[in-house]
Computed example of a mutant assay.
Amino acid sequence: MNFDALTDRRRLAERIRDSIRTVPDFPRPGIAFLDLCPVFSQPDLLAALAGAMSDAFSGAFDRVLAVEARGFVVGTAVARHAGRPLVLARKSGKLPGPVESVRYDLEYGSAELQIQRDALRPGERVIVVDDVLATGGTMAAAGELVRRSGAAVAGCAVVVTIPGLGGERRLGAEKVFSVLPTGN
């Protein structure tokens, strides 16, 4: 990465950091919710974010898989910027037709993520996009859906990584790109 690109990435990270609102005790006591809506409300900032994510995997992906719900905003922008098709990973019961499902554990229970069976083709390279990487459970489940389709995970892209929750460790060998890698 050249100096200008590094400087641009730092400026982008600063703008995003300055735009994120932290909401204490939401959705329950003890949780500090990162509200990215102010980032999404700025078209130029969202475009720059999409460009940085797309460029981090330039030439290495055929499709973008966006994770419900806030990942849809970022994933759509990345797919548009890269000129690549978009696939949606949704919560159980939200997609019509035959679906592939993965059940995964959360810190307070379990959830299920699905994609339509014909959404990915064997051999395709896919980047998985979401807003925040915390424990990595949702991102790991999305990666499993990609692999079950016969496609390959080219990497994972997020806006923010929350430190100390083990998300990157849980993803193992997957390349992870985070605009705010430390979450602060």
Rank of each mutant, 00 (worst) to 15 (best):
A5I: 09
R15P: 05
G167W: 02
R147Q: 12
V78Q: 03
D105F: 05
R117P: 00
V102F: 11
P98H: 13
V128W: 03
R148C: 00
A66Y: 05
R21C: 03
P96F: 08
P27S: 12
F26Q: 02
R63K: 15
R15M: 05
T182C: 07
L165I: 09
A66D: 02
A134I: 04
V39A: 04
D55N: 12
C37G: 10
V146S: 02
P85M: 11
A119H: 06
R84Q: 12
V67I: 15
R84V: 11
R169G: 09
R17T: 07
A48L: 05
D130R: 09
G172K: 02
T22V: 15
L34R: 15
R117E: 14
A173G: 14
N2S: 14
G51V: 04
T135A: 08
A152E: 12
A47K: 12
V126L: 11
I31Q: 09
S92V: 11
F72D: 01
V160N: 02
M139F: 01
Y104S: 04
L6G: 08
E107T: 08
L165W: 10
V159L: 12
G166C: 09
H81C: 13
V64M: 06
D118L: 03
A66S: 12
A89C: 11
R103L: 06
G97F: 10
T76C: 01
